[in-house]
Design a protein around this nucleic acid. Structure first.
Lengths: 231, 231
DNA sequence: GATTGTGATATTGTCGACAATAGATCATTA
DNA sequence: TAATGATCTATTGTCGACAATATCACAATC
């Protein structure tokens, strides 16, 4: 339990840490919508220099989580449920395109990799906390197979905050709901991979979108109950 | 006509200048694919501090024009014609979605604004050098009307470098071809705006995509002749 | 009383210097 | 000689300080 293995071997920079910390603070509700993020204050709080902090803020701004104005500073951007739905809608569009292009370039090794990930997710003994990581890995793999760097960049940009939000809310939710974290899947991943590898394009896209939507329903309900308890 | 635009006089920061300068250097071919961008050297060259330079590099990295590696520095990323086509394909997808959503939320003022821009573009006396700016303005307006911030962010991120590249190549091309800069339009803008305001969704999307593709053909041929003369 | 000008203050933009790291150089050894 | 390891150098990551700017309070003017 206590022996967590979350630390990647790759050494993360200071701005990486700050970036993740601020994002976590936003999603967990400690930093609220419209909250002004003063560089000096934040730098003191995290005990880092303003340079690293500014780099983190710039990344958050790029991701659309904070708003940067010249000589006016950074503010936490408003993330309404409607905007989250917008992000999800765009994600559905791009993931469909990724599936379309991935199907065209699929090699045998790609199939093996996809099935391997799906089996990891299907394995009943899998650590429930690892589920979202594996799920994310599956999506990323499909993006890579598509061979379309542009699509990859935009999908990462779009999905990364959604994924982080889901994970953070999952860990901060009340313990009674913890159980259903294990059956987020909805569409099971084996069927999805099968459709991508050997099904029709339409079928693959449909399963992918259903899979995303099913997971989204869970996350969205978490967000709403989180917002209720918050106010 | 009398619609004066005040806001564009915001003074640009140092990193804005450097960002634009490096991007220009990349598109004009002075900085070639894979070229290492040393911070100290670039900072000296532009006579700015490394802080501003790093900020510019980070933006270029977000835009996908340079690659940043920890403790290894920045390199100009490879932009093959195939990758440009990828970007265009994604743009077609997103612009179609923008048109779709804009049509649903269109107000009378929106119509007026769109027609005003289209007339500016249609006006035979318009400065040819202003054409791409107005064209960009038309697209941005449609994105805004869609009301979808996420779509806006991703479209800006995607189109901004394409637009910059087109503009830079236009100005650096040999003077004999300058004439056809005035008739890039392809689909004329009035028809496009009419379709968006009063046509069917399919018609509007089709005209939008044809318009983008027509302009792209011109830009792409410029890129190819530029690459030929380059080697 | 509302508006405009002026100054104080807090915050961001920019800079130069130091610390940490990667890559190259070169000596050492089997 | 080829492989190995220590050292050296160039470059990036991080920091604290100064300059430029926005915001607020308050006085002056109509």
């Amino acid at each position: 339990m206590g022996t967590s293995t979350f630390g990647k071997l790759k050494q993360e920079s200071t701005s990486d840490r700050i970036y993740a910390a601020i994002r976590e603070a936003i999603f967990s509700g400690r930093l609220k919508t419209g909250q002004r993020l003063t560089e000096i204050q934040m730098a003191k709080e995290f005990e880092v220099s303003r340079a690293s902090l500014r780099e983190a803020l710039q990344r958050l701004s790029h991701e659309g989580l904070v708003e940067l104005n010249s000589y006016k500073g950074a503010r936490v951007i408003e993330l309404t449920p409607e905007q989250l739905d917008e992000m999800l809608a765009l994600r559905l569009l791009l993931e469909a395109e990724a599936v379309r292009q991935a199907k065209r370039r699929l090699t045998q090794t790609d199939r093996d990799v996809l099935y391997a990930i799906a089996r990891k997710l299907h394995n009943p003994g899998v650590n429930p906390r690892a589920y979202p990581t594996f799920d994310f890995e599956l999506h990323q793999t499909i993006w890579e197979i598509s061979g379309n760097r542009t699509l990859q960049r935009h999908l990462s940009l779009l999905v990364s905050p959604l994924f982080a939000m889901g994970t953070i809310l999952r860990y901060s939710e009340s313990s009674r709901d913890r159980s259903d974290s294990t059956r987020d899947a909805g569409v099971d991943h084996i069927s999805l991979v099968e459709a991508i590898c050997d099904g029709t394009e339409e079928r693959a896209i449909e399963l992918m979108q259903r899979h995303i939507l099913d997971n989204w329903k869970v996350t969205r309900s978490r967000i709403e109950s989180f917002m209720k308890q918050d106010s």
